[in-house]
Design a protein around this nucleic acid. Structure first.
Length: 877
RNA sequence: UGAGGUAUAGCUCAGUGGUAAGAGCAUCACGCUUACAUCGUGAAAGUCAUAGGUUCGACUCCUAUUGCCUCAACCA
């Protein structure tokens, strides 16, 4: 068999992905095996793969592939999200480029454009996931706007409405003036902004007095309907019951009193604009104030803005301030830092706005979801655990969820109006049912479908994705079907903490409401991918590498390993391409190990004892590593698991085992050793496979011809067997001896090919198990056990054993003496600290027996070593 | 402002009430020894943030301080 000495990732990766697909390994159907299920966090349908997705999906693929190897029925459901606001914004922008205004289109026309867009770009990201090696069950690919998915959403809306949990209300909501839609509280990002605090003088009616008010938004004075002071503030007691006059528009407004006002802040009095501030709205309701809305839907001023009508709020802010300054109303300005709400999607500054919207009552719904995560007997685990606090805080302070959006792209709200009154509507799954309900409600049998007008708003995207773990298995429409019964609850969910509330918490809520059961067992929360300087990766910074280019350069396997090398759950990942290089390096290492085994000629000859021991040792070492790896997986410490594997391959397998069994140049290898090594190699491939699926599958098939039933992807994870601990510790000792030999060779520039003599004073009474291995790796001409110090030799010590490499007297006696004295000094210092401890009566009385025994052992070891060192020193001097 | 997290080698991070503190990468030195220079061997590198306390013993537990991160929040 001859293989290329260099690994060609590009060609190999596409070959094996096609092979896996052709053999349907990713596809899952319910059977008698234990299921292992993951639903993908659906990326935006028109999105492209970024580093966050790569990390996220690599983790999912590692978990899925491992589960598959463990013999579970692994099912990873992929799909995309219609992402209403983001997608609609993109479509609107594209139409604008073509000179088309969204407002000139009918709903149907717009949706046609949106679907075209979705079909053009949708699924690109899924193709990219294939390049990464993701073993999703593509036959199950779902889209949140698929007919069946939408049907489920509507069904749930109707159901929740019937339960009285969905209601329509006139409320202060977050208005995105750019997208011209409302947003949920979670879609608003509070950003710190440097702004100005304007001090304005308001005249008092029937008086020469003025009152100074501090505001950050002078343009909202047109909406002022009161001034508020604190009743306990004596500075303003003379103003109680009086009226103030709004500058520019000269409207007369009352001065009201409320303890809400902070006496310390600004001037201690507040202008109240109930239409444009949540707190002002509360104050307004309490004091029954008039509500004056001064903005259009794009946040330009309306006719209440007088001469400023039509100006954008920020333009108007400056213009109004200027006029106020000219008319002497503006007393002064100060710089002021405050938090401004911005739209997660459009970045526009959010305008609090009063409007009719649909809400979901959360108070009762969250209860089981809180218990599921936080209780003593919690059913859902968050990794890392610290997010439980965040979760608790949010869930316990939850407010009703605004689920309506003034968008077209999404599920249209199934409310049908038959009149102009606020209550003149029914909620139904379709128009026909709506008609029946409307007729019943009104008693008017003459109503026709044509009289019904469906609400024009669409539902928040998250109102569809919160059903994802159920709806992908058709569990809402058809709750008794085989799939939902088999796959739900799913096992692990892998996602970023940024959507813990948007999505994770809400899936838990809906899971309990609709299945009476949790949607998943474990939630693995990944960190953000940042660059080396800890900056977030973003388009605007241009610091995000192109995912596909990375794969091209380092191979998918290399990138996967690179991403996972340093990504503890919940910790941000400082991404550096050097990590991918490291991943690629691991691939190269494995490939060259394969190459080595292919150039061996295997013959029926006797097995050297060194090989026999080497194999026994590695088998134990492998088992020990396997246990460690299992433990890491159990705790979702994937990077630790990967590092353990990395070291096993690099150090133990390639660095030690292959060196130990490697035959001399052009010499054959015995069959027994060869077979054992290949079997060990295969076990290694199995545990690397979840991380590096392509390369391992390729090597697997290079090692021998395999049928599709024998592919690595569906092989069996190695079984755990007992570990021979003493063999491992004997080798640890032996490896120190080998290091000592290498050190001496290095110091004296003795080439490896020159065999050297070697003598041992075996104070430790170690076994001779590894002597042949030591002889081979140290290229020792002879190994002699002696009792007396060897003169004219270089020496080193492991514990109290002393080793000699005869140099025919060519040694630097002074240097040797110095080396020995340093070692002696160190050991004596160490001994002293141990003895200090042991002579402390309270330590001996208080410490556990095992600890004291350890200290005594340290003491005797140190004493023995000191003895050795002293003898050697004496013989040198 | 509040809550939580975190502080260990140049970098990214493990770590345990009882080993004069570990890994990977990076660095440096030497080496093209016959799988791999995408490599090997070796070396150097830490007052475990600061100050107190508990303890026979603290990097580990407690308190305070400082820095950084995240989340939450209506101070106009």
């Amino acid at each position: 068999m001859s293989i290329p000495s260099k690994y060609d990732a590009k060609q190999v990766e596409s070959k094996w992905y096609d092979y896996w697909m052709k053999n349907n390994y990713f596809h899952s159907t319910p059977d008698e095996r234990e299921p292992y299920t993951i639903v993908i966090p659906p990326p935006n349908v028109t999105g492209v793969l970024h580093m966050g997705h790569m990390l996220n999906n690599t983790i999912q693929d590692v978990l899925i592939r491992r589960a598959r190897l463990l013999g579970k029925n692994a099912c990873w459901v992929p799909g995309t999200d219609h992402a209403s606001i983001a997608t609609e914004a993109k479509v609107v922008a594209k139409l604008k480029e073509q000179g088309i205004d969204k407002n000139d289109l009918t709903r149907e026309e717009f949706l046609k454009h949106a679907w075209e867009w979705t079909e053009e770009y949708g699924g690109v990201i899924l193709e990219q996931l294939k390049k990464l090696g993701c073993s999703c069950d593509w036959d199950r690919t779902k889209f949140t706007m698929d007919d069946d998915m939408s049907e489920a959403v509507i069904k749930v809306f109707v159901d929740l409405h019937e339960k009285g949990l969905i209601y329509r209300g006139y409320r202060m909501v977050n208005w995105d003036p750019e997208a011209k839609t409302t947003l949920s509280d979670e879609e608003v990002i509070h950003e710190e902004r440097q702004g100005l605090l304007y001090y304005l003088n308001y005249k008092i009616e029937g008086s020469k007095d003025t009152l100074t008010i501090a505001t950050t938004r002078p343009e909202t004075i047109f909406g002022d309907t009161a001034i508020c002071i604190n009743p306990n503030d004596e500075r303003f007691s003379h103003l109680k019951g009086k009226n103030a006059i709004v500058p520019i528009c000269n409207r007369v407004i009352p001065i009201i009193e409320d303890e809400y006002v902070d006496v310390e802040f600004g001037t201690g009095c507040l202008k109240v604009t109930p239409a444009h501030d949540e707190n002002d709205k509360i104050l307004g309701d309490k004091h029954k104030l008039e509500v004056v809305d001064i903005f259009n839907e794009d946040a330009s001023l309306n006719s209440f803005g007088m001469q400023f009508e039509g100006q954008d709020r920020f333009v108007a802010r400056k213009a109004v301030a200027k006029l106020l300054e000219e008319t002497g109303v503006l007393a002064k300005t100060e710089t002021h830092v405050n938090k401004v709400g911005t739209s997660e999607r459009t970045k526009a500054v959010i305008e609090p706005r009063l409007s009719d919207q649909w809400f979901l009552k959360m108070e009762e719904l969250v209860k089981p979801a809180i218990k599921a995560v936080l209780g003593e007997d919690s059913e859902i685990n968050l990794f890392p655990k610290k997010f439980e606090n965040t979760y608790r805080h949010w869930m316990e302070n939850i407010r009703d969820w605004n689920i309506s959006r003034q968008l077209l792209w999404g599920q249209q709200i199934p409310a049908y109006f038959y009149g102009d009154g606020k209550e003149d509507f029914v909620v139904a799954e379709n128009k026909e049912e709506a008609l029946v309900k409307a007729q019943e409600k009104t008693g008017n049998t003459a109503l026709k479908t044509g009289d019904l007008k469906q609400d024009t708003d669409a539902l928040d995207t998250w109102f569809s994705s919160w059903l994802w773990p159920m709806s992908v298995f058709d569990g809402i429409r058809n709750p008794e079907n085989e799939d939902i019964k088999y796959y739900y609850p799913t096992n692990d969910l892998v996602t970023g903490p940024d959507i813990l509330f948007f999505w994770v918490a809400r899936m838990i809520i809906s899971g309990y409401e609709y299945k009476g059961e949790k949607p998943f067992n474990n939630v693995y929360l990944t960190g953000l991918v940042r660059d080396k300087q800890r900056r977030k990766m973003s388009k605007s910074l241009g610091n995000s590498p192109d995912a596909l280019k990375l794969i091209e350069e380092y191979s998918a396997d290399g990138v996967r390993v690179g991403l996972l090398l340093s990504s503890a759950a919940g910790n941000d990942l400082m991404f550096d391409e050097a990590l991918c290089q490291q991943g690629k390096g691991l691939g190269n290492k494995l490939w060259s190990a394969l190459y080595l085994t292919t150039i061996w000629s295997v013959e029926d000859i006797e097995q050297p004892n060194s090989s026999k021991i080497a194999i026994e040792w590695f088998e134990s070492k492998f088992q020990k590593a396997l246990m460690e790896i299992e433990d890491h997986f159990g705790k979702y410490r994937l990077s630790d698991a990967l590092m353990a594997i990395y070291k096993l391959i690099y150090d133990d397998f390639c660095g030690w085992l292959l060196e130990m069994v490697k035959p001399a140049y052009q010499q054959p290898i015995d069959k027994k050793t060869y077979n054992s090594v290949m079997s060990i190699f295969e076990d290694n491939l199995k545990i690397v496979h979840p991380f590096m699926p392509f390369l391992t599958e390729e090597i697997w098939h290079q090692i021998s011809e395999r049928t599709p039933e024998e592919a690595l992807i569906i092989s069996k994870w190695p079984e755990t067997k007992p570990v021979n601990e003493s063999l491992i510790s004997e080798f640890d000792f032996a490896s120190e001896v080998i290091s000592g030999i290498r050190n001496i060779r290095k110091q004296k520039n003795i080439p490896f090919k020159d065999a050297i003599g070697f003598s041992i004073i075996n104070n430790e009474k170690t076994t001779t198990t590894f002597d042949e291995v030591i002889a081979k790796l140290g290229n020792l001409g002879s190994v002699d056990y002696v009792t007396e110090t060897v003169d004219g030799a270089l020496t080193f010590r492991v514990k109290s054993n002393e080793y000699f490499v005869p140099m025919g007297g060519r040694i630097d006696v002074d240097a040797e003496i110095k080396k020995l004295s340093d070692e002696l000094n160190y050991t004596e210092g160490f001994l002293k600290s141990v003895q200090k401890k042991l002579s402390n009566e309270r330590f001996v009385a208080g410490a556990p027996e095992q600890v004291i025994a350890n200290e005594r052992k340290k003491e005797s070891d140190a004493l023995a070593k000191i003895e050795t060192l002293k003898t050697s020193l004496a013989s040198l001097q």
